[in-house]
Design a protein around this nucleic acid. Sequence first.
DNA 1: TCTCAATATATGGTATATCATGGGATTTTT
DNA 2: AAAAATCCCATGATATACCATATATTGAGA
Lengths: 156, 156
Amino acid sequence: MRKNFLFMDTITNKVDTKGRVSLPSDYRTIVKDLSTEIVCYRSLFSPCIEGCTEELLDKLANDIENSLDFFSQTQDTLTNLIFGDAKRFPFDSTGRIMLSEKLLKHASISNTAVFVGKGRKFQIWNPQNWAKEEARLRNEVLKNRPSLKYEGERYD
Amino acid sequence: MRKNFLFMDTITNKVDTKGRVSLPSDYRTIVKDLSTEIVCYRSLFSPCIEGCTEELLDKLANDIENSLDFFSQTQDTLTNLIFGDAKRFPFDSTGRIMLSEKLLKHASISNTAVFVGKGRKFQIWNPQNWAKEEARLRNEVLKNRPSLKYEGERYD
DNA sequence: TCTCAATATATGGTATATCATGGGATTTTT
DNA sequence: AAAAATCCCATGATATACCATATATTGAGA
């Protein structure tokens, strides 16, 4: 897995009538040396779209493949949901992608989309929903400061 | 195993009176440099058709052959069933395949087929059945959030 | 610190290419 | 000879590529 690339910052862009949005240029440069597309899917737990490089999903596919769990049930469930939903979104020379109806609906996005960096991934939110969610998250963190455990290999 | 090919997304295509279906173009490009056919077989656990590249089945055969795994006996049985059922389905210049009666019946497909990406594999469902199955899976995931953790990365 | 020019990025609109699908012609199978 | 499978062409819908304009960001000079 390539290191030193992180989706960061929060950027607000317009969605036109055809569903086109400019992918923030910072995000584009992350992918550029590999390809000209990004992968998006409906978040399983939030009303937003999630995005990442195909590289990340490819790694997931590999790990599953090599775990000798070709027939495992849990793998089955999750791979169905993630790969079944994920789709490549190529961006043209002007840097736009065309989000599908399904994705836009899931995130309640119509005119405006907010890109929120999340490290190896990013999310796309409806502006109002993101404002609320961010407030909620900040509040939660203040209340019970969670530990960022490194031994357990969880960084989220 | 070749990198960077993933069956993704969910695509709905028609099955015409002759039994022809367009293999989604994204799926075709995955196979194109190798061949012009895809392998399909009846899913062992769901009322759907499964598809993959011949390459993947080849890898499966190899893995079983070289496995010292204690449970490989079970894997062996399952593999037998798959190889007994699997068949190559060539697609023509317009990208269509003709699924067999046996497969269509197993998945209860008549007019419409839904292609569901699954990483290195994909599935073909009856539309109603897939809708139900997807709902079920999403529900299950929401109830008891399983972790898809591999070497510190989270994919969900 | 401010202003203005230069550059990069975002957005709107239009032309072009691609894909799914229907139908007919040709070949193969039984 | 009949049935089935394969191939090939035509078409409408839709996504993609491209060009043009607007907006924002950056940097230099005062």
